[in-house]
Simulated scan of single mutants.
Amino acid sequence: MRTTTVGDVTILLPDLDPEGLHQITDLPDDDLHDGLMQDASWRGQQIADRNFRGCRITEADLGEINWEGGALYGCEIVRTDLSGAALTGVNIERCSVTGSRLTGSRLIDVRLKDVLFGNCRFDYATLNRVSAAGSVAFTDCTLVHGTWSSCRLSGVALRSCDLSDLELESCRLDGADLRGNRLHAFAAPLDNLPGVALTENELPELDRMAVDALNIDVRADASRGHGR
Rank of each mutant, 00 (worst) to 15 (best):
V6S: 07
G7T: 12
V9P: 06
V9G: 12
I11L: 14
L21F: 04
H22F: 08
Q23W: 10
I24N: 03
D26K: 11
D30G: 14
D31S: 09
L36F: 10
M37E: 07
S41T: 12
W42E: 05
R43D: 11
Q46S: 13
I47W: 01
I47E: 00
R53I: 06
I57E: 02
A60H: 04
W67C: 10
G69D: 05
G69V: 09
G70S: 03
A71K: 05
G74Q: 06
E76K: 05
V78F: 05
T80Q: 00
T80L: 01
D81E: 00
L82N: 01
G84D: 02
A85C: 05
A86Y: 02
G89H: 08
G89S: 12
V90N: 09
V90I: 10
S96Q: 14
V97F: 15
G99E: 05
T103P: 03
S105D: 07
L107W: 07
V110T: 11
R111H: 11
Y124S: 15
T126H: 11
S131D: 05
A133G: 10
A137V: 06
F138E: 08
T139Q: 15
T139Y: 13
D140N: 15
D140V: 10
T142D: 15
L143Q: 10
H145V: 10
H145R: 14
H145S: 15
G146I: 06
W148L: 15
S149R: 12
S149L: 11
C151M: 07
S154G: 15
G155C: 01
G155H: 00
V156D: 02
V156R: 00
L158A: 06
L158V: 03
S160H: 04
S164Y: 01
D177C: 07
L178D: 11
G180V: 04
N181R: 02
F186E: 13
A188T: 05
P189T: 13
P189G: 12
L193C: 03
E200D: 15
E202S: 11
P204I: 04
R208Y: 08
R208M: 11
A210Y: 05
V211F: 05
D212M: 06
D212L: 10
L214W: 14
N215M: 05
R219T: 13
R219L: 11
H226E: 10
G227A: 12
